[in-house]
């Protein structure tokens, strides 16, 4: 499926990616050609095929309900771009 410019900007918005106005055309072309490649899937009929989400036929293992983690806030937050009083800071969130 060929995408138009507004498709590209909508997708970029959904994915929260800032894209320069000048690059939209290039993305439009590249993404359209990737989608054309992807659409080769349509060559086969898969009506009776069950989708496969995981390569292995395994089932979910369960974890015992035990508190195994200790507070390591200082270490875990060391990479934070902005923090104060043990909180990650972001521009004001408005509800």
């Amino acid at each position: 499926m060929a995408l138009d410019r507004s498709d590209v900007t909508n997708i970029a918005d959904l994915a929260r990616l800032a894209i320069a106005e000048d690059n939209i055309g290039q993305y439009q072309e590249e993404l359209s050609s990737i989608l054309a490649l992807v659409e080769q899937m349509n060559a086969v009929n898969t009506d009776d095929v069950q989708p496969l989400a995981h390569p292995a036929d395994a089932v979910q293992r369960l974890r015992a309900d035990v508190v195994s983690e200790e507070n390591q806030r200082e270490k875990y937050m060391a990479n934070a771009p902005a923090q104060e009083n043990g909180l990650f800071l972001v521009p004001k969130v408005v509800e």
Binding site: I11, A15, L17, I19, Y27, L31, V38
Partner: peptide
Amino acid sequence: VKRRIMIGTYALS
């Protein structure tokens, strides 16, 4: 990376 994120975002929408 941006291309693949966008393709994936589109494919799931």
